[in-house]
């Protein structure tokens, strides 16, 4: 709600509600706030919520599978793969804006598959998976920058903003496909919430309970990767949301496994709050939302890296 009211000009809550009602459902009279609230802020907020939720769930799933908070899609190369492909496509003018999100998903999946193949050595170990993922993330980032320097200045500028993760100038066009995709994937997410109960046990115990660990892990990881890639396609790689949201959610609920719904809500909250701050903090200059999430997320990542010496060893095998 605050998101709708606050901006370059403040709109009273009542006015914001009226504007939303009018623009969305044709209720009530037109108001002067219609454009700002209904056409700009509302779609942007919706997109922010969806992107945050998708990143939150994606992070929760992948962290569950790898039993390691470091194994977030934005750390292990999924977001970077999506970025590289998208920026490449932008630079060379391949594909219109409508196909970019799909290219992004393809990029994320490809990157994840490559990490998987390279980390495989007669079995998959969580620590190796994370390390190789980080390596891939760095490599893909350089490729993305290569595209940027090769490309046309204007395109590069646009791509740069996309790359930091920005909701600026985005709206229903990006929000709608993502919303539908989340809806379609909802049964998968419900399944995942149940599957988490056994995957969070150790391998032998889970197998003894009749869980086909290999398949379940592959399913969970794929779902997470698709969600993260789609969110990246819609808003760019909003860094660290997938890393932070599940960890915050878990600390809040103190549950045995990372809670999916709570991670989604936390992710949505983080993105929308960060975007609000991004709009207001240095107004009239708008920061990309990814800058803010990175400002919070990077210190936490360092904290995780410093404390992972003991924890990494506990993590079993991944995917």
């Amino acid at each position: 709600m605050a998101y709708l009211c606050v901006g370059e000009g403040f709109v009273a809550p009542a006015g914001a509600v009226k504007a939303v009602l009018h623009t969305q459902w044709g209720l009530g009279p037109a108001t002067p706030n219609d454009l700002v609230v209904g056409t700009l802020r509302l779609p942007r907020m919706t997109l922010g919520l969806l992107v945050g939720a998708a990143f939150g769930i994606a992070g929760a799933l992948i962290q569950t599978v790898a039993r390691n908070p470091l194994a977030s899609p934005d750390i292990i190369g999924v977001s970077q793969g999506a970025s590289a492909v998208t920026v490449g496509a932008m630079t060379y003018g391949i594909g219109s804006f409508t196909v970019l999100p799909y290219l992004s998903v393809a990029g994320g999946l490809t990157a994840a598959a490559l990490v998987y193949v390279f980390a495989w050595r007669g079995g998959l170990h969580a620590a190796r998976f994370v390390l190789i993922g980080i390596g891939f993330a760095v490599a893909l980032r350089s490729i993305t920058h290569l595209f940027l320097t090769k490309g046309d200045y204007l395109v590069a500028q646009q791509a740069k903003v996309w790359m930091t993760g920005s909701l600026n100038g985005r709206g229903w066009g990006e929000a709608a496909p993502l919303g539908w995709a989340l809806l379609v994937l909802l049964p998968g997410v419900l399944w995942a919430a149940r599957a988490q109960r056994t995957v969070s046990l150790d391998d032998d115990t889970a197998t003894a309970l009749g869980v086909r660990l290999g398949r379940v892990r592959l399913g969970l990881a794929s779902l997470g990767i698709v969600l993260a890639s789609m969110a990246t396609g819609a808003a760019g790689p909003v860094d660290f949301v997938a890393l932070l949201a599940p960890q915050i959610a878990r600390r809040m609920t103190r549950t045995a496994q990372i809670p999916l719904l709570c991670s989604a809500l936390t992710g949505a909250f983080i993105v929308v709050t960060a975007d609000l701050l991004a709009r207001k903090l240095f107004a009239p200059t708008e920061l990309p939302v990814g800058v803010l999430t990175a400002a919070v997320g990077a210190p936490y990542l360092i904290h995780l890296l410093l404390s992972s010496g003991g924890r990494g060893r506990k993590g079993g095998t991944a995917a």
């Binding site: 969070s200 046990l201 150790d202 032998d204 115990t205 003894a208 103190r254 549950t255 045995a256 496994q257 506990k314 079993g316």
Partner: peptide
């Protein structure tokens, strides 16, 4: 068939 491994590991914070 039920099996209890030699060193099972419980998820953090599970009751």
């Amino acid at each position: 068939v039920g099996l209890l491994p030699q060193t099972p590991v419980a998820p953090e914070a599970i009751t």
